[in-house]
Structures are given as structure tokens and as C-alpha cells.
Amino acid sequence: MPSPNQTPKAVPIPPAGSALILLKINGVDRSLSIDPRTSLLDVLREHLSLTGPKKGCNQGACGACTVLMDGQRVLSCLSLAVQLEGREITTIEGIANGELHPLQAAFIEHDGFQCGYCTPGQICSAIGMFQEFQNGLPSAVTGDMAAATIEFSDTEIKERMSGNLCRCGAYVGICEAIHSAFDREVAK
């Protein structure tokens, strides 16, 4: 048992083993020396002050940490940063240049959030989801897996977004926001 008068150690012990990685985050090359145990999420939040991606469960069950990796939505909590050399990461902070992304604006308009904690993950996820939809990826509610076209319906959106939990229950607003931001592109 530690002694009652234990004093803190003055000099920090460096992490056991560290790795150098180069990541491209929101268009900027970042060279980092990290403990290989560090997740992409913790690299972003604790090392790069990019706190937009959120830690909701750290176990791949809530989607709050969703970022885009080479354009695809992934969970940054389950990604070991050491594995991501050379990958392009886009976080909520990088999805728009100055102005709001149309989906961000739609989230405000349709009140697609309350506390705002799951919001960055919802938005990044929806952007990735829409890309998947356009690639022709079917979902669990797409009846015919071989269908040439899939309707961009409420049910499709909700199924594809189900990996992003919102405990405030803003799902109705989120779904409306996604429709309003992407419907026009679907029609093209």
C-alpha cells in the first residue's frame, strides 16, 4: 500500500515505447510521437486539441467519435493511431471551410441535437453515409440487395445512421436535417 505521505514523482516517466507517425488531419500534415496504445480519438482530443470528435463509450458502441478516413466514416476510438500512417483524417473541424457545411446548417435549422455531444459524430457519419449510399451500398432495410437504385427514404437514413446514438433523442430532427441537406443531390 502506498505510504500516506507519498509525494508525487517530480519527473514524468516517458511512455514505454513510442512511435512516430505522420497523419494528415484536416488537410494538415501532423507528425507525432505517440504511445502505440493511443487511439486516433485520443490523439485528436488529447494531443491535437481537436475535441470535436467525442468519447461516448470508447468501445465502438455509440458513434460519437466518428471521423472520416480517406472519405469513409470510421470510429476513431477503435482505431489505433499507430496504424494510420499516411491516412487522411477529416474531423468535424475540417468538414467545412469557413462557412457551414450544408448539413451543419441543416442540423441547426431542424434542431438535430440538444446537448450537442453526439452531434459531430452524427454529422461526420451522415456525410460518410451519404457517400456510401451514392456508391450503391445496400442496407439492412434495402429489400433487394441487387437493386440498381435505392430510395433515399427515412427508413434507409435511419438504418444507416443507427450506429450513432443520440440519448437526447434528436433523431427526428437529425433525419429531417439529412433529408434537407442531401435530397437535392439525390435527385441529380
Binding site: 475535441t51 473541424e93 451543419q104 441547426i108 459531430p120
Partner: peptide, 21 residues
């Protein structure tokens, strides 16, 4: 009225407890 903190929340700029430097 839309939330006054909406912009900060959708941009990931709203700082929650664990995020203060």
C-alpha cells in the same frame, strides 16, 4: 428561434468538461 449555441455545437467548438486545456 434556433439555438444560439447551435453553430458551436455543429462545428465541434462547444467545449465539454473533459475538453478544457
Amino acid at each position: 428561434v434556433s439555438r444560439v449555441d447551435g453553430q458551436r455545437k455543429v462545428k465541434g467548438e462547444a467545449r465539454f468538461t473533459a475538453e478544457f486545456e
